[in-house]
């Protein structure tokens, strides 16, 4: 049976078990060993300058076992999933999937508390999980207030004019959030998935 083990503890700066763990546990990670450090991915990234390391260097850091540095890197969060690197990678490594998989690990293991993209993903997930769709106000409010009460109010006020114009244009509505049809079924499906994940992780921890 599949298990989801926690990544090896980052007690050392270099822990080779981390590389092995990524190969085995992150979606697409098994192809990481094929990386030849050519730089095609980082060079092709349209927002490459907005990344601390870029995928190529991040992959080398994984191999070097730099768990802490990898899971706190902004590279995994700033990826816009345009797939430019994936189509060009000479080794057909699913770069995007790997970055996404690492982001999931970073959240699960508490490495990304201040990552704005992580906060946004949580807000997005909250809305989808409860209503079956995204509600602009809910996602925005959840996101803004995840930075704290004062920061939340500040950001909210700063964007008020945009919100008013959106309401006027009929792009944002007032009243309760819309619900998708069968939102309750969706919730049940998600609950089941979460239960399975929890079980697999508990088993993984025992191993």
């Amino acid at each position: 049976m599949r298990t989801i083990a926690a990544a090896p503890a980052g007690s050392r700066t270099y822990d080779l078990n981390f590389a092995r763990w990524v190969y085995q546990n992150v979606d697409g990670g098994d192809r990481l060993s094929l990386c030849m450090q050519c730089g095609m991915c980082s060079g092709s990234c349209p927002i490459g300058t907005a990344m601390d390391h870029g995928p190529r260097k991040l992959f080398m850091m994984i191999r070097a076992g730099m768990k802490e540095a990898v899971l706190t890197s902004d590279t995994i969060w700033n990826c816009t999933q345009c797939y430019n690197c994936v189509v060009r990678c000479p080794r057909q490594i699913p770069v995007t999937n790997i970055l996404q998989g690492l982001a999931t690990v970073a959240v699960r293991e508490g490495y990304a508390p201040e990552q704005p993209t992580a906060k946004f993903a949580k807000a997005f997930w909250f809305s989808v999980k409860h209503f079956g769709r995204t509600d602009e106000r809910l996602v925005t409010a959840f996101f803004y207030f995840s930075f704290g009460l004062v920061e939340g109010i500040k950001r909210g006020l700063a964007n008020l004019p945009i919100a008013l114009r959106m309401i006027k244009a009929g792009r944002m509505h007032l009243g309760a959030p819309h619900r998708a049809k069968g939102a309750a079924d969706l919730r049940a499906i998600i609950a089941k998935a979460e239960e399975i994940e929890k079980r697999e992780r508990a088993q993984g921890a025992q191993q």
């Binding site: 050519c38 730089g39 980082s42 490459g48 260097k57």
Partner: peptide
């Protein structure tokens, strides 16, 4: 020519 110098990480 566009790319990444992999020794310096210069784009």
């Amino acid at each position: 020519l566009h790319g990444e110098d992999t020794l310096t990480r210069e784009l």
